[in-house]
Structures are given as C-alpha cells and as structure tokens.
Design a binder for these strands. Sequence first.
DNA 1: CTCGGTCCTTTTTTT
DNA 2: AAGGACCGAG
Length: 770
Amino acid sequence: MQLNPKQEEAKNQIDWPLLIIAWAWSGKTATLTARVNYMIREKWIPAQNILMVTFTNKAAREMKERICKSLGIEVQNNYFKNPKIPMLGTFHSIWIFILKEVLANFSADELQIWLKRDFVIYDETDKLSVLKWIIKNDLHLDEKQFPARQIAFYISNAKNALIWPKAYEREIDSQIKEVVHQVYTRYQDKLTQNNAIDFDDILIKTYSVLRIPRILEIYQERYRYIMVDEYQDTNMPQYEIVKMLAAKYKNLAVVWDDAQSIYSWRWADMRNILNFKKDYPDANVIKLEQNYRSTKTILSWANAVIANNRTWVKKDLWTDNTHGEKIIYIEAPSDKVEASIVAEIIKWKTSPQPSPLEERGQENVLLPSTSKEKDWGWGRCSDNLILYRTNAQSRQIEEALMIKAIPYRVIWWQKFYDRKEIKDLLAYLRIIHNPLDVVSTKRIINVPSRKIWDKSIEILDNYRESFAIDYPDIIDNIEEVEELRAWAKSSIKEFWELMRKLREFSSTLVVWDLIREIIKQIWYEAYITEDLSEEEAQSKRDNIDELINVASEYNGIEPRESLATFLEEVALITDMDSKDDREDYVTLMTIHTSKWLEQKRVFLVWLEDGIFPSFRSVNDSYALEEERRLMYVAMTRAREELYISRAKERFHFWDYVRNPESRFLKEVPNEVIENYDLGKCSLADKSFFNSTAPLSQSFPQMEKEVATIRKTFKVSVSNDISQFNMWDRVEHHKFWTWIITSLNWELAEIAFSGRWIKKMNIKIAPIKKL
DNA sequence: CTCGGTCCTTTTTTT
DNA sequence: AAGGACCGAG
C-alpha cells in the first residue's frame, strides 16, 4: 500500500520518541506495519528487538499476519518464541510471556512475586468465588451487606492504582474500605496458595518484576523499539511498564486517538498522553488526518456528534471519498418491528428478488435510490454488521434474522467460555497443569458426582487453613484427616488417582487428545447430557466439539507446552476465532467489540436515551462523553451505508418501556439524515399510536407477552384498575417510587424523578399504591 | 447430610 | 430465563 506523506514520515522516524495522533481509519495499522517492515528490512534491526503492543487479540493477529507476509515468513502459533518475528500481542499476552520467562530464569527469592511457573489465570467468575469464600467463611460477614462484586470493584481499583494490600491501610476511610482491606489481603494470599493470578495481577506482577534493575535491564536491551497502539486506552500500570521499558533507549512510538477512548471503566486513562508529553518533551508529533474508509456523509455526521464533547482535541477528519448515501434513521413502533425492518433490509439487499415493498407497488424508501442498481442482487450477508450497546440486545434481532432465514453469527466472548461444559473441562485441564488450583478443584471434584459434598470440602478447607498445607499434600495423606468419613476418603483418593493418571497422560498427549481422554475417563458426555432433551444435548456436544476444535490448533507443539499455551490463550481470548471467515454471515456484536473492524453497511440499533447513552451515564458528564465517543466509534465503522434505528416502545427488563430518542441524534446535522418513520412504512401498524384501546388489543402479539409477564410475576389476582388515578404515587417492587403521568384504561405511564418513563399495564404490574 | 423445590436476583462495555 | 441461595423434608 502506498503511504501518504504523513504516514511515510511516521514510518521513517524510528529512533526518537514519537506520538502519532490518529483519526479513525487514517491508516495507522498500515503505517505501523510498514514501520516494522522498514526497521527490519531496511535498517536491519533484529525482529526480536521490536515490541509492539495492541489492544485486542484480533488486532495483534491481523498485524502479525501482515508483518509475516511482508517478511515472507509463515505464520505460526507460538510465534513469541520465533526470533524472526517481532514481539507482537496484547499487553496481557506479552506480559504473561515475560512472567513465565522470568519465573523460569530467576529464583523466587529474587522475584518476590510468589508465583510458580505453572500458574493459572483466574477469570471474573473464579475471582468472585474466591472473594465470596473469604467474605463468608473467613471473615464471617453478611454477603448482602458486602457483595463480592462490590468488593471486587474496590480491589481492582486499588490494583490499578498500584496500591498493594499493605498500603491499602492508608486508604481506609469508611467501613466498606476496612472490609476491603481485609478481603484484599486474604485474597492475594489465596491466589498465591492457588498459584493463580487474576487479570489485574498480570500487569501488577509484571510491574513488580520489572522494578528489579537486573531484570529491567534485560528487557530494556531486548525491546529497544517499542510501539503501543491505542495508547488512549492504556491504564496506569500499563503506562508505568511501558515507561520503564522505554526509559533507556527512548525509541517509543505511541498511537493516540482521544475520540476512540472507550475503556475508562477499565481504568484506561486517555490523559496518559499528558504524561507522555511530560516524559518525552521533545517527542515528534505526527498527525494522521485523512480517513480512507467512510463516505463524507458518515464522517461529517461523526464529527458533528463528537464535537459536543468538551474534553476532546479539536480535529477535522476528512476524506477524499464520495459523499455517498444519506444516513437512514428508522423510528419503529416497537422492538419487534425494528428488528424485522433491519432483517428485511438485509434480506432484500442480499437476495436477487425484488423487495416485498416493491411488489406492493410502493416506493421503497428503505433503500437509497442511487444504490439500488449498484447493489441489486449482489450484496453478501457478510457486508452487514449490526451493532448494539450491550450483549443482551442481540436477542430480538436474532429472532428476526432467524424468521427470515438470514445466516448470522453473534460475537460474544463470554457466551462460549462461560458455559458449564466448557468451564468444567477447562477446570480439569487447569488442575492437571497446576495441582494447586483449588478453585478448579472445588469446581469439578464432584463433577461428575463422586459423592464428595460440601461438608467434605469444608473439612479439607479447614484442614488447609489450620495446618497451612496445600490441597495436593492433604490429599496425598488423606488418611490422616480424621474428620472425614471413610467413604469420603476413598472417593477423594480415587479422584486424585484419576488426576494423577491424567497428569501422566499430559506429558505424552497434546491438549487436543488430552481433552478427549478426560471426556472418556469421566464419562463426561453421559453426565452432561443427562436429563436433557435431544436438542439441548446436541448443543452441549457441539460446544464440546468446538472446544476440541480450538485445541487442535496446538497439535504441532510439545504436549506439556500445548497444554500451557492453550490454557493461557483461552484465558485471554475475547472474540471467537473467526475461522469461518469465508462463509457468508451477518455479524452481530457490541460496539466495544467492533472497534477493530469496518464494514460496508452498518446497522446501529436501540438508539434510545437510557440505553445508548446508558442510563448509568446520563447524570455523569464524564461518563456521558465516553458514551459519545462510543457513538463516534460505532458510526465510523461504516464505510458506505449507515442505518440507525430505535423503537418507540420495547419490552426490556421484563417491562414495556418507552424511551426517548437518543440525545445523540439531536446532535446530528439534519441534511445528512433521511428520516424514515412510520408514515412511509408498510410494515408498521400506523393506527397503533393513535389508538386509545388497551395495548394488548392494538398490538396482537403483545397478548402473548402480557401472559408471559403474568407468569413471570405470578400475578394471579389482578390489581383493581379503579384504584389508580393520575399523579398517584406508586411503589414498584424494584423501581422505588414512581408517579403515574398518564393513564389510559389499564395502560399507565409512570415516571421516576421526572426523567425516566416506563409504560406498564397496571392491572398486572407488580405495583402498589402509596 | 442430601436432595429437591422455590424464591430471588440479574444486565454495560472486556483484557 | 437461568443460575445461585435458601429452606425444609427425608
């Protein structure tokens, strides 16, 4: 690819601190790739001296592929160990590599991080289960008063400010922090006992290790050229680590785009750039201002929205591209209609048949007139990307796509790795890898049932606490635990014998075979599909197959190594591997996840105040600005066509709600938008809005939903409608006190603090008059 | 001690 | 809708 002069400048300037201020799609990936290529091929810098940090695995993978291609090297799996390829990955994956390397080469006394080489990474669920255990069994506190989630938040907050348990004492200014201090201390002890670390620890432990001069020196020498992408999304520990590594040679290049900073809730701080300027006052600054992807219309819209942010460096993203189509705004009467319009547009754009609207002889306003011929019958499903604010929002869209038989896939990192069958099997693998992992041991010691119940585990725990002996040692000498019944002892022994056997297998079988061996040994398939319908059982089997499939990628490696690498990558994985790229799918994902990609046609749904921007952010100007940046990211994903939509009424959180239109829409210049409302839509039921009849009558399918609510809330006796009047204060079982602001037969609108309006059927709603 | 039923909560974004 | 917490019966 031909670089523009600015990009060229960034490419060639390799031995001085460099700040690249980038705009959306200004070709920063191409620039960075060319820069690495230039370093290696023209400046003869050894690839292993280059460190490049990206924000997501996907970005790392893509960049790795591009670089390997340009260097003529075949892409490999454990490329960290290939000296011909630069060190390239996310912060987390690179630090893990460094941690393992350091643990292998230095003594525990010197490192002082209390980790053994075969450590495992605890995810959010594992973390919560450790915290819950501490709160309940260790400190004997009320879980309701001190929820594990909240404590976890405080601890994570402390860690990201580099405050250790000991130092946390100084932070205590409230009862909750007193508790946090105690939990935090014990939590770190537990992690050490289990030879485990959580996500925050990956950064913290690396930071600690690099504080040792002898070690820092090694890595400073090795990584003389450092590049950090998405610098606006780095947090404090990340900033400190990069600063330390770059301190000696100062060959640090960062890419920064304040308009795309959307991770402050993960303690990312875009003001790190101020620190950068302080640390390297003489850094070169290069701005990449030209956008190569989107149409002028989409960009002007994105610029107009982001300009409403106060904390934002003014910039005008420009492009040579055409004006393109107008943005289309769909206001649907209900969530169902919204979803089906989206599905209809996709169906129509991807199939050679005329649209149903055309057949009815109506002008089709859904499709910009100029693109009609261009696209006729040629569109592919994979040209379409549907974005929403939260993962839970995919459901209705999925249903609509299913009805129209449009192939799609949902990208939801959690979905797969949070399933019971996957977590169970991974727990087995983790114990094989790290016998000290008590969280995993507890998870599967009774899976499938070995008659080892909570009581036995409690005894083991007590034993461990009072004698400070690790699980494996206790179990090796299980006969000495007197409290245990004989049958429990023999069950535990049998379990441990099994693990020992599996551990032996792990030195000869690659992880792919190992998983299958585990499934066979414990009769897992029979266990997991027991009492399930054939359909559900098949879905379990499919998931297991998928896991085995992922594991097959590690087949060429030495067995123990394949297990270690697999566990590590599975822990850090975010998006499902898109191996089926060649197939034709519509893709659905959250806006956050979409940050690394672009698409020809983008649908942005659920554009309603309270949803996007999220109701948690509307009273907080800082949070609101982040939502606006998120909006900017969403819009700039589109290359040619952008559709935005909202529903005037939707069923959300087990209630009918009417959300006002998203405030971001009011920030948009009118001339670029084609407002497409009900007046022109044959799909929608226009009479709905004028009707005075009960909701369930004017919208037949809602009858069924009302029945569902009835079932959910188990309301058998209905409220007496006549007792409610306008302006009555009512109490909702979970929404505090609301006021009735509109009343129409059994349908009422209630308002909370004059801002939030919910619509509900008072006959069956769980409300009480005050 | 174990099992099974019912009640209660949950949903912002992810390395 | 679904998983976890809680409780009471055997």
